[in-house]
Write a protein that binds this DNA or RNA. Sequence first.
DNA 1: TCTTCGGATTTAGATTATCTTGATGCGTAA
DNA 2: TTACGCATCAAGATAATCTAAATCCGAAGA
Lengths: 304, 304
Amino acid sequence: MRNLNSMHLNGLRAVETVARTGSLQAAGEELGVSASAVSQQVNRTEKQIGKVLFRRTSRGLAPTEAGAAFFTRLSAGFRELDAAVGQVRQSNADTLVASVAPSFATKWLVPRLRHHFARYPNVLVRVDATERLVDLSGSDVDVAIRMGDGRWPGVDAELILPQQVFVVAAAAKAERIRSVADLARETSIDDDSSRMVTWERWFEAAGVAPVRPLQGARLNDPLLCIDTVIAGQGITLAWQLICADALADGRLAAPLPIRADLGFGFWICTAAGARPPRKVRDFIAWVREEMAETAALHARLPSG
Amino acid sequence: MRNLNSMHLNGLRAVETVARTGSLQAAGEELGVSASAVSQQVNRTEKQIGKVLFRRTSRGLAPTEAGAAFFTRLSAGFRELDAAVGQVRQSNADTLVASVAPSFATKWLVPRLRHHFARYPNVLVRVDATERLVDLSGSDVDVAIRMGDGRWPGVDAELILPQQVFVVAAAAKAERIRSVADLARETSIDDDSSRMVTWERWFEAAGVAPVRPLQGARLNDPLLCIDTVIAGQGITLAWQLICADALADGRLAAPLPIRADLGFGFWICTAAGARPPRKVRDFIAWVREEMAETAALHARLPSG
DNA sequence: TCTTCGGATTTAGATTATCTTGATGCGTAA
DNA sequence: TTACGCATCAAGATAATCTAAATCCGAAGA
């Protein structure tokens, strides 16, 4: 941008408009300023460029030939800018950005996205899979689905899927676990990506005397924990969403009948106080519907 | 430009620069303002667009995905503008605009232009053939070649080809004209594109008693007059440049031996007071050289 | 040739936009 | 925890830009 940085862009816009409309008056009208202002802009730009761009005639400004090629490219440039602005503005209307945890994206959202597309073909859903709790009013994220207790500042949150927490183990290992006391002999694979699910809180919510499983790996992704457990490396505390299919097909088992309610689940969140636009309300309604099936499935999960 | 007219272009430039450089500081440096100023520009632009374009991180601004496509097009647009400005600036160096009368362009300049190109292949000469006396400092015209007495305000003028004025007629008609008195029986085809050449001034300069030729057509182009005279429609006052070839090949004859000096000729003019750039000085030198041949040719012209 | 008219330009002052500085906040690295 | 880098905010200073009215200029018409 060597040439451009020393130019007044508004001057260039004035020049382009004058070239296109043929007079200062018309250009001024299009730009919403007086003809005088346009005149000054054009003159300044001519000075900056070092060439006379218009011949002043009694019925307006006519491009000099030196200017003709210039105006063509100027117009092309401004049209491109215009299109860029138009596109990014419009993209508001037809794309929806959902920020979700990677585990939720993998296990639930992405597999169902084609249903959403079938119903709302005009809306492109972009999934922003991140651990980070994004600031809904300070980013381009329209909606977030988060695991937690629903108490976040600055968001309106609706509980869409309550979750219980229970012990899971690979099928072979599960047979050795008949009671809570047996946990003390097992190695625990802990997820530290969330502060919500801990053995302490689980024993407390389950209302049983705490025992101490052996300390195994600490991973920062619940799905990683599940995979590690499936591989027979130990046990972990899980909730329905992340282990439903592994329980259903027998790769995992829930050896104990205790499903503790830690008061958490999945919430769908929008920026506080603002009525979400249509596309977001549609998306939320769609999530609720799909969630109904998921919740029913979870209720039928084998355990104990 | 529906979208663009409501935007601050400088804001867009700020956004583009930040996207490219990755931080407000760097962008500010490139734009020559403080980081704070860039921050304000970016924020305002985000407000105008209605979308958050950057994620604020502790080591700079990172584009949101919504922004990525936008920045691509923004950059393309600004590059186009930049190229346009660069081109029109540079075109100064390698094109030369010469404003000449149509008759001079046809009879002299255009036929010789290929010599100029042969010697200065980098310089594109654009011939602006117009009757109008252009304002050399208020247009993109670098040099003008004008017929007259050299007294024009605002230009530095150099006489390159003095011209005499004499009576011409088609060969057949010329035989009937033996003396000035015979002119009274002829029809005169007058050029009124210039005030310089009139029968009154010619008789005065020739120092002979005026007679009145019959009034024929009045045309606004000396070449048109010549053609009309060649067609046998009458006589006219001409000067060497416009009738040299017709005299040489016999289509025209100059029946009288009087070549009146009206004090006019062709002058090459540049904007007053300014030393012309190299390309213009080269052009003028070239014109002088070519003119030497032309003047020699004119001296050998048959007459009387 | 004179007048008139449409448009461009100039000028000065008023109004806005923009910038700078210094303070503040926030997240990462030491 | 502190320190650092960077973004942001706030207020005043500065500079760009606009408007209005007067003026200029060339073309068309009387």
